[in-house]
Design a protein around this nucleic acid. Sequence first.
DNA 1: GTGAACCGGTGGTCCGACCAATATTTTTTA
DNA 2: TAAAAAATATTGGTCGGACCACCGGTTCAC
Lengths: 235, 235
Amino acid sequence: MIKAAPLLKPLSKTKLYEEIVEQLKSRIIRRDIGPGEKIPTERALADILQVNRSTVREALRKLESLDLVEIRHGDGVYVKDYLESGSLELVHEILFKDGLLDLAVFQNLLDLRRLLVPEMAWCAAKNRTESDLSSLEQIVFHSDDMPMDKRDKRLHHIIARASGNVLFVLLLNAFTRQTDQYYNLYFKDERHVAASAAFHKAIYEAIRDRDMVRAKQIMTDVLKAAEENMLKLMK
Amino acid sequence: MIKAAPLLKPLSKTKLYEEIVEQLKSRIIRRDIGPGEKIPTERALADILQVNRSTVREALRKLESLDLVEIRHGDGVYVKDYLESGSLELVHEILFKDGLLDLAVFQNLLDLRRLLVPEMAWCAAKNRTESDLSSLEQIVFHSDDMPMDKRDKRLHHIIARASGNVLFVLLLNAFTRQTDQYYNLYFKDERHVAASAAFHKAIYEAIRDRDMVRAKQIMTDVLKAAEENMLKLMK
DNA sequence: GTGAACCGGTGGTCCGACCAATATTTTTTA
DNA sequence: TAAAAAATATTGGTCGGACCACCGGTTCAC
């Protein structure tokens, strides 16, 4: 039932510019290079890293779009304070500062999820359309072939859409990116799979019946249980 | 007291690659180019837009980091479904689809803010350190020279930090980017300035006293009032 | 039929040049 | 002498053209 998880990473045939991004991103997040500080010029970086200037530029573009640096024409490249301007895109870096998972930040993530996702379910129960409902039905009752991690992810996505608030969808995407890698692991336990299947049915019914309070309550309970299991798993 | 607002944009001497980003981003968000579709090759784009391929590449990098396109080596560039993978960075584009403010999405933004920010205040009242408190004091009582829009923004930022949840900070940043442009306008009304000053003192006291419930309540009320005023202003 | 070699097209990287904006220094000027 | 203006140096922005690495489809040998 559960598909074998390809726990191995794609064995990164990393692109050069990505390596540069990683190096700089990491140093900025860990405050090796402080906010306001000027980093070497494109030409200098190219020289240091032994790559072409174009490659450096592509890396800097990426860092700029992450709001980690500010590029000033004719002047130079300056490090920004990501706490002042950074976006959710940085969660991953902050979560894994120094390669190890930062448990405090992970807890932050869970806290926020516990605030948002139940509310999302509430809204979904309130605003769901017939079309949303049939999407839900499809995933809950007619997707036995799909591994549970994907089903669960998909279910949340549909609920987010059904909430009628597009921002929930975008936020959920941000969360998903972080938790994806643990889902496989989590659903290796057959009990978790069974529990999720039950949960899917329950939340489906609540949303179908437009029972906002129940939908929210179910979601709250599920998250709580899942968090406990997950933390147990990580110890 | 209120600084004259430079409502005019910096009169963008737009960089070329940015123009390309804007064009493509807009077309993707408005579904001119559907998810899964392949866009012209870098060389073709360079030819069409009459720019150098490097310039096109920098633009594509940006779109890639927005999760709007997927670049496949040896294959091509494909449009992604931003609802499936997009991040909060896209809020701005979605908010201003077709150049006009999408009121439904704007309402979504307000709804989400009303969920998050009061909770943030609650956490701040719970977790604030002495250092946070003195930062607050500074901004509430000793920053008369600072225009109210900046003070208000700063206050929220400090509260976010004080919450002890770094994700609140990043989320708030995302919101702020959207609402910044309206703040000037909002604080042109002397009554709003006075109201905010009173609010600042009230929330400061609640956080100082570690009164979580009151802090949350104050924030809820303020947001409600501000929303009403803002919607009035927009009509 | 099937697998291997091939080939065309695409993104990835490189080089070296020049343009455009900014910062710094030098010169001019009041 | 100090402020203003002009020249210069530095840095990011754009250019063009070349070659490499990877992917997909085609062809060909078996």
